[in-house]
Amino acid sequence: MSGIALSRLAQERKAWRKDHPFGFVAVPTKNPDGTMNLMNWECAIPGKKGTPWEGGLFKLRMLFKDDYPSSPPKCKFEPPLFHPNVYPSGTVCLSILEEDKDWRPAITIKQILLGIQELLNEPNIQDPAQAEAYTIYCQNRVEYEKRVRAQAKKFAPS
Results as ranks from 00 to 15, higher is better:
Lys48Glu: 08
Ile109Pro: 04
Asp100Cys: 05
Glu42Ser: 11
Ile109Lys: 00
Lys76Gln: 14
Arg8Asn: 09
Lys153Asn: 14
Lys18His: 08
Phe58Asn: 01
Asn140Gln: 13
Ser7Pro: 14
Pro84Tyr: 03
Leu114Asp: 09
Phe24Ile: 06
Ile112Gln: 13
Arg141Ser: 08
Ala131Trp: 01
Gly56Phe: 00
Val27Ile: 12
Asp67Cys: 12
Ser89Tyr: 15
Leu114His: 12
Leu120Pro: 02
Trp53Cys: 02
Glu54Leu: 04
Tyr137Thr: 09
Glu143Cys: 11
Ala131Ser: 14
Glu78Ser: 11
Leu120Lys: 02
Phe22Gly: 07
Ser70Phe: 09
Leu94Gln: 02
Gln130Ile: 03
Leu57Gln: 11
Lys74Ile: 15
Glu54Tyr: 07
Glu54Gln: 12
Leu119His: 07
Lys59Gln: 11
Met1Lys: 05
Gln139Trp: 09
Pro73Cys: 10
Gly115Ala: 06
Pro123Val: 07
Pro79Gln: 14
Phe64Gln: 06
Ala150Gly: 13
Cys43His: 01
Ala106Thr: 13
Ser89Ile: 14
Ala10Asp: 00
Phe58Trp: 03
Pro52Gln: 11
Glu12Ile: 01
Val148Trp: 03
Lys101His: 14
Ala15His: 11
Trp103Val: 00
Met39Val: 13
Asp67Lys: 07
Phe24Met: 10
Gly23Cys: 00
Glu42Leu: 06
Glu98Pro: 11
Gln130Lys: 03
Glu143Tyr: 10
Ala15Trp: 08
Gly56Asn: 02
Met62His: 05
Asn121Asp: 14
Arg141Tyr: 10
Arg149Leu: 09
Lys110His: 09
Gln151Trp: 02
Gln117Val: 06
Ala5Met: 13
Arg8Ile: 00
Glu143Ser: 13
Lys74Val: 15
Ala106Phe: 01
Gly56His: 07
Gly115Pro: 04
Thr91Val: 15
Leu119Asn: 04
Met36Cys: 07
Trp41Gly: 01
Gly50Asp: 06
Leu60Tyr: 09
Leu113Gly: 04
Glu12Pro: 02
Lys49Pro: 05
Glu118Ser: 07
Ile116Val: 13
Phe155His: 09
Gly90Pro: 06
Pro157Gln: 13
Lys49Leu: 06
Asp102Val: 08
Ala129Asn: 00
Asp33Thr: 04
Ile112Lys: 07
Tyr144Gln: 02
Ala150Val: 11
Leu38Ala: 07
Lys110Trp: 04
Met39Glu: 14
Ala152Tyr: 00
Gln111Ala: 14
Gln151Asp: 03
Arg8Gln: 06
Gln151Cys: 07
Ser158Cys: 08
Asp19His: 06
Pro21Cys: 03
Gln126Thr: 14
Phe64Ala: 03
Trp41Ala: 08
Trp16Leu: 05
Arg141Asp: 10
Lys18Tyr: 03
Pro32His: 12
Asn140Phe: 01
Cys138Pro: 00
Lys14Asn: 07
Asp66Thr: 13
Gly50Met: 02
Lys30Trp: 03
Leu114Glu: 11
Lys18Gln: 09
Thr91Pro: 14
Pro88Asp: 15
Gly50Asn: 15
Lys146Arg: 12
Gly50Gln: 10
Trp41Asn: 07
Gln130Ser: 08
Lys59Cys: 13
Trp103Lys: 01
Arg8Glu: 13
Pro123Ser: 02
Thr135Phe: 11
Lys110Ala: 04
Glu12Arg: 02
Gly23Ala: 06
Leu63Val: 15
Pro73Ile: 08
Glu132Leu: 09
Gly56Ile: 02
Lys30Val: 10
Lys146His: 14
Val148Ile: 15
Lys154Met: 09
Ala44Asp: 07
Met36His: 05
Trp41Val: 05
Asp19Arg: 04
Val148Met: 02
Pro21His: 05
Cys75Tyr: 03
Pro80Ser: 10
Arg13Ile: 03
Gln151Val: 02
Met62Val: 12
Leu60Pro: 02
Leu6Tyr: 14
